[in-house]
Design a protein around this nucleic acid. Structure first.
Lengths: 189, 189
DNA sequence: GCCATAAGTCATCAATCGATGACTTCAAGT
DNA sequence: ACTTGAAGTCATCGATTGATGACTTATGGC
């Protein structure tokens, strides 16, 4: 039963266990706020003992830092061609949870904006891995301001869609709103 | 010392005490996430005993509901003239905490998007008091989608400014970004 | 001036949280 | 095969939380 996961693996594999905890934490933190995620929950999802969370990551805050580390990496998502940036970003953000692989961290971000100990962490990461690279890609006048504007848009869309489940973003009118959002972002490019 | 607050008031005034708790909770909830606000903190800020919070509001969740009740009320903010809507909203959202009287609830909203028990509460309130009235004001084609777009923008701006303290929104480049944001919102009107 | 009732205070409970240390079990090196 | 150290388990601590009930104090009608 339990060994029906990884093909090989001597049942006791520290690296694999660590990775399982990290994966479970990534999911938990992207669906609930920082305070509402317990180390016991993460351990249960990962199928390991609760004590291993503290053992491998030191503390819950360290675990959180490991989750958001390198989680945004927008560059690879949009470095291809700027012409479809608006639609691409909107699709990624408004898309379902399963897809949008690289945007788990975005959901993590908007769940963590309330904790004074966590917010600076995630804010810095977001600035470093999203806003700044985006500004560098945009070039031209006021690139920084336009990048910040796009970032605000992305966060707002993600909050309404995943944080508040606003009805306006699902169904027929949601497609229209998504198209408008894509155009608005594209206007900043 | 203690009586240097309200001019008159027989020291034991239930309504006044209740209002003090509510005011303190409003401030707390707008600065910290739902879980990070303790009933003891609120009571301490209000200068009352901690037990009175549960006595007057029943529970922490009821207190939260009382805080966000009628907190958005955008209509009076923008019913005047739609021509200056973009600038007006941006000024309100990006403005300092002291001003922006009616927008405390917006900060409360973006702090509470992570709690599955609270998010529907605040989402419904936001939809009822902001998005829907705004859509009714906009009229024309796709009014609902455009209202949702403006709402997403407002939430994104508020999150970056008050939730993440993004540096791009302060200083000189912040003014440029604010102007761009105002124009973008105005384009949805 | 008294007294019934509302308002406020205090102590405390039960649950949950993150974290720690001692103990047990497995896997690998020789 | 035996030993050694890592990997995993278990029990539990201390702090904090929301909430409750019994108790004390002040207020206003008579």
């Amino acid at each position: 039963m339990k060994s029906s996961r990884e093909p090989t693996g001597p049942a006791r594999n520290a690296a694999q266990t660590r990775e399982r905890i990290l994966a479970a934490a990534r999911v938990r933190f992207s669906r609930h706020s920082y305070e509402n995620v317990g180390t016991r929950d993460v351990a249960a999802d990962a199928g390991v003992d609760a004590a291993l969370v503290s053992r491998y990551f030191g503390s819950k805050e360290k675990l959180f830092a490991a989750v958001i580390e390198g989680g945004f990496r927008v560059e690879e998502h949009l470095s291809e061609h700027l012409s479809g940036l608006g639609k691409h970003l909107v699709d990624q953000v408004l898309g379902d949870a399963r897809e949008a692989a690289g945007f788990d961290a975005l959901r993590v971000l908007l769940r963590a904006a309330g904790n004074p100990a966590i917010a600076p962490l995630v804010a810095g990461q977001f600035q470093r891995e999203f806003v700044r690279p985006l500004a560098r890609l945009l070039r031209g006048r006021d690139a920084e301001a336009r990048a910040a504007l796009i970032a605000a848009y992305v966060i707002g869309l993600a909050t309404m869609r995943h944080g508040l489940d606003a009805p306006a973003w699902t169904g027929a009118s949601g497609r229209k709103a998504a198209a408008l959002a894509a155009a608005a972002i594209q206007a900043c490019v």
